[in-house]
Design a protein around this nucleic acid. Structure first.
Length: 518
DNA sequence: GCTAGCTGATGCCCG
DNA sequence: AACGGGCATCAGCTAGCG
């Protein structure tokens, strides 16, 4: 039967395409259908995760649970059993499929309004608005303004490296209590305040657009607060959050090679102004008796002054800021374990734990390492030192007993390129061997860019070439376990040693905790 | 033939 | 087709050892 879903009963056209969101690139067959817009909630999920980073995974089931869209009585069927259930219990399979459809619908209702709002005023259709990046959108707005005034368009300048945000760590170990402050919309504020825009934009469109979007966002937030009707509130929320996403991309646009009005000097002036502002902020809070713990681009964690008068401290900090720059004191924590730059754990006042940083919560870590980190950091933050020191032995036994599911030890990696691209780069000599790609090449099925590969390391020696000893989790035989216990024990020990090595020497000068100077 | 120690590429993360 | 900065891991190499 022909899939005549287009207007005038037309058929879908397909062509190979790529979707990118952040560092992730996915190869997929793009469909275009006359008079229709096709939006994949999977891509909306990936784009959402770039900014929010709270999803455990990107599959429908886990995303639905994350957003609270899964009904308690939802039917679940593991992928491997679908064929069997289809034969033996088709009614159950139907319930499963209906639940999938229901959750997809609910996910769409949640994630798509922002894009629908964009389609109403950007020169792209709904489908394209969901697929294209923010630089392409800003470029389109710029071009529209230039063409309307019949002005010539510039050619993009060539790329060069430039310095980014200020990142530093002042204290490692356990700090308590801890506060967080953050400069509101740092880069957009600096661009507007210091009039930093592209040199090639003699029309001054860039900053006018930025200013207009900011005004538009503030209005939408007001409307949202005033709206009594939930549908209206959702509408205005989509309007304000789509403006926010674009506003935050203006700085990145300046430093983007393909952007028509790019300007690397201007991008560098923005980051330099940001660095200067944050350095001044560090000095200020020090002078007021607080101890900075770590800083990253536009926010700072610090131990507040011992007198306990947060309000006085905060208004003193505010008083020292330049015109047009606002600070938000947006976090209070019982304790913070400061590990390395961009890597820390927080215990908030409700008793919840938050982990940040590639070394502490990366999806690239094996589940046993993620679990160990979580347990270890929780005990560290809560001061349960005896249990913390015993933790390593518990995990060592679990590995040595060989009774955990293999997925607990396995690493899952995303293939950035197609295996053929990897092979070409290998023969060209530009790339070392990699376990995930080697397995993808040898596998029966065809792998594409964006696919995930789960593997574990087999053998019995601690030092092995991972690319040679790796086995696909799907080829694992529970009757003949061959995971490399020595290898995994050594990984666990190295991790535990790294964490325990973070010194907790005598009290800091202010006497507020066990800290070491970074 | 082995290992420690380094470098560069890669993956994933922070803001 | 937004940016730069940072950490961990691995492959691939070299120097040093027995």
């Amino acid at each position: 039967m022909a899939l005549t879903l287009g207007r005038e009963d037309r058929l879908p056209a397909a062509r190979p395409s790529r979707f990118t969101a952040g560092d992730r690139a996915v190869a997929y067959p793009r469909r275009d259908l006359f008079g229709r817009h096709i939006v994949d909630t999977y891509f909306l999920t990936l784009a959402y995760d770039v900014t929010h980073r709270a999803l455990a995974g990107h599959g429908l089931k886990e995303v639905a649970r994350h957003f609270g869209l899964a009904r308690p009585d939802r039917t679940y069927i593991p992928g491997a059993e679908i064929a069997r259930i289809a034969r033996e219990d088709p009614a159950r399979l139907e319930r499963y499929v209906r639940d999938d459809a229901r959750e997809t619908r609910a996910l769409s209702d949640l994630l798509s309004p922002v894009y629908f709002a964009q389609a109403q005023w950007l020169p792209f259709g709904y489908q394209d608005v969901c697929l294209r990046g923010n630089a392409a959108k800003i470029d389109a707005l710029m071009q529209r303004a230039y063409l309307a005034e019949r002005r010539a368009l510039p050619r993009p300048g060539s790329a060069r490296p430039f310095a980014g945000g200020y990142t530093d760590i002042f204290l490692t170990g356990l700090a308590r209590p801890v506060r967080h402050a953050d400069i509101r919309s740092l880069y957009p504020s600096l661009m507007l305040r210091e009039r930093i825009g592209p040199a090639a934009d003699d029309g001054g469109v860039f900053l006018s657009l930025l200013d207009a979007l900011r005004t538009r966002r503030l209005r939408a937030k007001d409307e949202m607060r005033r709206a009594a009707d939930p549908a209206a509130r959702l509408f205005w929320d989509a309007q304000q959050s789509t403006a926010k996403v674009l506003i935050n991309s203006f700085y990145g646009y300046l430093g983007f090679e393909m952007a028509r009005w790019n300007d690397f000097d201007a991008a560098e002036r923005v980051t330099a102004a940001g660095r200067a502002l944050l350095r001044a902020l560090v000095e200020k809070i020090r002078a007021l008796g607080a101890a900075p713990v770590e800083i990253d681009t536009d926010g700072i964690y610090y131990i507040p002054p011992a007198d306990g008068d947060d309000a006085a401290f905060e208004s003193a900090v505010r008083a020292g800021l330049p015109e047009g720059i606002e600070i938000e004191f947006d976090g209070r924590y019982e304790a913070m374990f400061s590990y390395k730059m961009k890597n820390y754990a927080l215990l908030d006042e409700k008793g919840e734990i938050v982990l940040r940083g590639a070394a502490l919560k990366s999806r690239g870590l094996e589940p046993f390492q993620r679990e160990f980190l979580r347990d270890w950091l929780e005990l560290r933050l809560r001061g349960r030192d005896e249990e913390r020191r015993a933790l390593r032995e518990t995990y060592r036994r679990r590995i040595a007993k060989r009774t955990e599911p293999i997925a607990w030890l396995a690493r899952t990696e995303t293939l950035q390129d197609a295996p053929a691209t990897y092979a070409a780069r290998r023969t060209a000599g530009g790339r070392g061997r990699n376990a995930a790609y080697e397995l993808a090449q040898a596998a029966d099925r065809e792998y594409r860019a964006g696919d995930r590969v789960s593997y574990y390391v087999a053998g019995d020696r601690k030092n092995v070439a991972v690319y040679a000893a790796a086995r696909l989790v799907s080829d694992w035989n529970p009757e003949r376990r061959d995971e490399n216990v020595a290898y995994y024990l050594s990984k666990l020990d190295e991790l535990a040693d790294r964490l325990e090595a973070v010194e907790t020497p005598p009290a800091a000068p202010s006497g507020q905790g066990e800290l070491s100077l970074g």
